[in-house]
Deep mutational scan, measured.
Amino acid sequence: EQRVMALYDFQARSPREVTMKKGDVLTLLSSINKDWWKVEAADHQGIVPAVYVRRLAH
């Protein structure tokens, strides 16, 4: 499974989004949309801005 790391803090503004802190490692579920990526963090799935995360090497 692909992982991403948060580059910045992000506060969810809707139930579809995921709140994350800089340095958090999340599971990447989908990167089809270039602006918003779907991730999973602590059993919560949602979207985060793609520019706020970076793919981690396997």
Rank of each mutant, 00 (worst) to 15 (best):
S31D: 15
N33H: 14
L7H: 00
V39A: 00
V4P: 00
A50G: 00
V4A: 00
V25W: 01
D35C: 13
I47G: 02
S30Q: 09
V53G: 07
Q2A: 13
P15G: 08
K38W: 11
H58S: 13
R3H: 08
Q2D: 15
D9P: 04
P15C: 08
W37D: 05
T27C: 05
L28E: 08
A41V: 05
I47T: 04
V53K: 02
H58A: 15
A41T: 13
Q45A: 11
A50V: 02
H44C: 12
R3E: 06
Q45I: 13
V18Y: 01
K38Q: 13
P49M: 03
E17P: 08
K34G: 08
S14D: 14
D35A: 06
F10Q: 06
A6M: 01
R54N: 05
A6T: 04
M20K: 06
S31A: 13
Q2E: 13
R54P: 10
V48A: 04
A42H: 12
A6V: 01
L28Y: 03
A6I: 07
A50S: 13
L28T: 07
L56R: 01
V48Q: 05
S30T: 05
K34S: 11
T27A: 00
A12Y: 06
M20N: 11
P49S: 07
K34T: 13
L29H: 08
V53R: 01
Y8S: 11
D43I: 09
H58T: 10
D9L: 06
V53E: 09
S31W: 02
D24M: 07
T19W: 00
V51D: 14
H44R: 13
L28I: 13
L7Q: 02
Q45C: 12
T19K: 05
M5A: 06
W37R: 10
D43Q: 15
V25C: 11
R13T: 11
V48K: 06
K22C: 06
A12S: 02
A12M: 01
K21S: 01
K21F: 05
V51A: 15
V4R: 01
Y52M: 12
A57L: 02
T27Q: 10
A12G: 03
Q45L: 04
P49D: 01
M20E: 04
R54W: 05
G46L: 10
L28M: 00
V48R: 06
V51I: 14
V25H: 08
D43V: 07
L56Q: 01
V51W: 11
D24C: 05
I47M: 15
G46E: 12
K34Q: 10
V4I: 08
M20L: 10
E40Y: 06
A42I: 08
L26P: 04
P49V: 02
S14H: 10
R3F: 13
T19F: 09
K34P: 12
L7C: 04
L26G: 05
P49W: 02
K38I: 13
P15Y: 15
V39F: 05
V48D: 08
P49Q: 01
D43N: 12
T19L: 09
Q11I: 08
A57R: 12
R3A: 06
A12R: 09
Y52L: 10
T27K: 14
R54G: 07
V48H: 08
Q11D: 06
W37F: 08
W37S: 00
S30K: 09
N33W: 02
A12Q: 07
D43A: 10
K38F: 14
